[in-house]
Write a protein that binds this DNA or RNA. Structure first.
Lengths: 358, 358
DNA sequence: GCTCAGCCTGGGATCGATCCCACACCCGGG
DNA sequence: CCCGGGTGTGGGATCGATCCCAGGCTGAGC
C-alpha cells in the first residue's frame, strides 16, 4: 500500500489523476484543470471581481468534480480574519454550561462560524492556557464564563473581542451577558421568609464573583427587607462538585439547630442538598424547604419538584453571540452589559416550616 | 480614539513602541527587537536547529516582553499539520453527549490539541456542513457520533482520520469506539423477564443504526432465550426529543393492554417514560417497571432510582481520542473497533409485575 | 598552515488563498 | 482614427512561520 501523501505531484503537472486525487486538492489544481490562472479560479469561486459567467461556471464545476474544499487556514492567514470563535466554559458536564454551549454552537453555525470549545474545569491556569490557544488561532472573538479577572484583559490586549457570560469580572471594560442575580435571589429568599422560615441557609460555592456576590447580596437584602436577623453561620461555602458539597450539606443539615429551608446557589449545590436530605431522611418540604438557583431538568422529575430560579442557558448563549458579533462589527462602541431576566418556577419543594423549627 | 489596527507600522521600522504594541506582534518584530533574523528567532522559539544559548534566551525574553503568541494559522499552513481536532456530536444538551465532549476536551488539552466542536442536532445536512468545515480547517482528525453513513467516508476521502463513537456506520472501514449494546440490552431485558414480566415494551428512537439495531436485537434475544413470545406492538418508535417521546409513551401506557415494564433505549426516552408514568399516576415499580439504557444523574435522584445500563460517556470520549491519536500516528493500520463494557446499575424501578398484569 | 567537522546565522522559498495592479480586448463616441 | 470606460484575465506580492541550504566562524588535528 502506498503511504498517503508520500509522493506529491510535481507542480505544473497535469492534475487529472483519477477520481480520488492522491493529495489534497488546492486551488492550483482546480485552476489548471479548468485551464485558467489561480487568480481567475479564486474570483470564480469566491465571487469577488470580474469573471466571465461561462468561465465561472466551468471553474465551479471542475472544483466540485475534484472535491475541492478551500483551505480555511490559508484564507484566514491572507484575509487576516478568522471565521471561528472561541468558547470557554467551566464544566461541560454541568447542564447549565452545556446548554450555554449548545446555544452558542447553534447561532455560530447560522452565521457560518465554527466554534472552538474549551473546558477549563474552573481552573485559572487552564483558562489562561485556553486563552492563549485562542489568541494563537486568531479567533474572531471569545465567549467566556470567566474564572479569573485576567482573562478578559489578556484577550483585550490582544485585540480579541470578548463577551463575559454568566459571571462578570471586567464590568465596564468588557461586554457581558448576565442575569439579575441579586433580584432573583432576593425574590426566592423573600418567598421562604414569607412562608415563615427564619433559619434559611444559603449553600453557595464562592462569594467574590458576580454570581456568588450578588446572590449572597440578594439573600441578605431579603432578610433586611423582612426585618429578620440573619444567622451568618447559615451561609455555607460548599465547594464545587456534588460530592464535597453533599458532605457539607450533610453537616449543615445535621447541626443541633438545623435550617428549616435551604437556598442552593446553583444546580450542583441543589443536587448535593437534595442527596444529603435524602441520606438524612429529611422529608421535603415537610421538614426542609429547598429552592435552587438554576432550573435543570431533574428538578421537574423528582417529587416534589424543586422550586427554582430558571435562567435560560440557551438564550444566554444566543444573547452572548449576538453581542459578540455586534462587538466585532464596531470594535470601539462602549462596553455593554446585557441583563437577561429570570423566572421563578414554583414547584412543591417549599412549604411553611415544621412547628418545632420556628 | 484611534481605530485599532488602522495604522500598521512600516516593516523594517523599529519595533519599540511602548508596552502595548498597536498591532499584533509577529516573529518579525521579535526578531528585530532581538537583533536577529526571522530564522534565528524561529529556531530560538521552537527549539529546532542550532541557536547559541545566549541568543536563544534573549529572543525568548524579548518575545515574552512583547507578548508574542505565534500564529497557529501560519504555522499550520507551513507545517501542513494542524493541532486541532474536530468533534461532532448530536446534541450537546443531552448529558451523554456533553459528557463525551467533556472527556474528549480534557484529553485533547493534555495533548496540546484544541477542539473544534459542532452540534448537528441529529441532522445529516448539518453534519455534512460541519464535516466540510472540518476539512476546510484541515483538522488533524475527527471524532463523530455519526447520523449518516456518508460522513466517515467523506472525511476519509479527504484523508482525515475519523473515529466513530457510540454509533457505528462504517464498520471495518473506520475506527470506532462503542459499547456492547446487544449484550447489555439482553441482560436488562432478561432481568425483567426473570422478574416475571411478559408484556415488556421497548421504547426506542430508531432501529437502523448500530445502537438501535443492537439494542433491539438484544431485547429480542432475551425473549428468545426465555422462550417467551414477543408482542411486536410493544416495540415503539418514540422520536428524538422528550416531548414527542412523552406523548408516545403516554399512548403506550394507556393502551387497553398496557405493558407491565418498559425498557427505554436511552436517557431521553427514559425521561419521557418517567414523565408519562407520572402523568398517568402509574406507580413505579408497583404498576410499572422501568429500565434505561444510559445512566444519567437524575436516575439516582428520583425515587425509586432508575435501574440502568451505565456507559461511561467520559471514558468513551477518552477512548475515542486515544484511538484517534493512534490512527494519526499510523494512518495505514487496519481499522479497529474498541468495545467498552457497560455496567448494570440496579435501583428500585423494577419489581415483579402486578398480579392483574400477568 | 591547512583542512574539516561542528556550531551558528541569515536569505529566500514555501505552504494556499487572496487581491492589487497591469494589461488586453471590445465597443461606442467624438 | 483615437480615446476612454467597462469587462475579463494573469502575474506576482502578501499574510506569518518554518525550514532548507549556503556560508561564516572557530578550534582541533595533522
Amino acid at each position: 500500500m502506498t503511504r498517503a501523501g508520500q509522493s506529491r505531484r510535481k507542480t505544473g503537472q497535469a492534475a487529472a489523476e483519477g477520481p480520488h486525487p492522491t493529495w489534497r486538492v488546492t486551488i492550483r489544481e482546480v485552476a489548471e484543470a479548468a485551464g485558467v490562472s489561480r487568480s481567475t479560479a479564486s474570483r470564480a469561486l469566491t465571487g469577488n471581481g470580474y469573471v466571465a459567467t461561462l468561465v465561472r461556471d466551468r471553474v465551479r464545476e471542475v472544483a466540485r468534480g475534484l472535491g475541492y474544499v478551500p483551505d480555511a487556514t490559508a484564507r484566514h492567514l491572507r484575509r487576516q480574519a478568522s471565521q471561528s470563535i472561541g468558547v470557554l466554559v467551566s464544566d461541560l458536564s454541568n447542564p447549565f454550561y452545556a446548554g450555554l454551549a449548545a446555544g452558542i454552537s447553534q447561532q455560530a453555525r447560522r452565521r457560518k462560524y465554527t466554534m472552538m470549545l474549551a473546558d477549563d474545569g474552573g481552573s485559572p491556569e487552564v483558562e489562561a492556557e485556553a486563552a492563549e490557544a485562542f489568541v494563537a488561532l486568531r479567533v474572531a472573538g471569545v465567549i467566556v464564563t470567566p474564572v479569573s479577572a485576567q482573562i478578559s484583559d489578556y484577550l483585550a490586549r490582544h485585540r480579541i473581542p470578548v463577551v463575559e457570560v454568566d459571571r462578570q469580572f471586567a464590568a465596564g471594560d468588557c461586554d457581558a451577558v448576565v442575569v439579575d442575580n441579586e433580584r432573583a435571589a432576593r425574590k426566592v429568599t423573600a418567598h421562604l421568609l414569607a412562608l415563615g422560615h427564619r433559619r434559611i441557609a444559603l449553600v453557595i460555592d464562592e462569594m467574590h464573583w458576580t454570581t456568588g456576590r450578588d446572590r449572597l447580596a440578594g439573600y441578605r437584602a431579603a432578610f433586611a427587607d423582612a426585618g429578620v436577623a440573619l444567622d451568618e453561620s447559615l451561609v455555607v461555602s460548599a465547594g464545587w462538585d456534588v460530592d464535597t458539597a453533599r458532605i457539607e450539606a450533610h453537616k449543615l443539615l445535621s447541626r443541633p439547630q438545623p435550617p428549616t429551608a435551604v437556598f442552593a446557589a446553583n444546580n450542583v449545590l441543589a443536587e448535593a442538598v437534595w442527596r444529603a436530605a435524602d441520606e438524612l431522611d429529611l422529608a421535603i418540604p415537610e421538614r426542609l424547604s429547598l429552592v435552587s438557583f438554576d432550573d435543570v431538568s431533574w428538578m421537574s422529575l423528582v417529587r416534589p419538584g424543586v422550586t427554582a430560579v430558571a435562567q435560560d442557558a440557551v438564550a444566554l448563549g444566543e444573547a452572548a453571540i449576538s453581542q459578540l458579533f455586534e462587538r466585532i462589527q464596531s470594535p470601539n462602541a462602549p462596553a455593554r452589559t446585557v441583563l437577561l431576566s429570570t423566572r421563578m418556577v414554583m414547584r412543591g419543594s417549599t412549604a411553611p416550616p415544621p412547628p418545632a423549627g420556628r
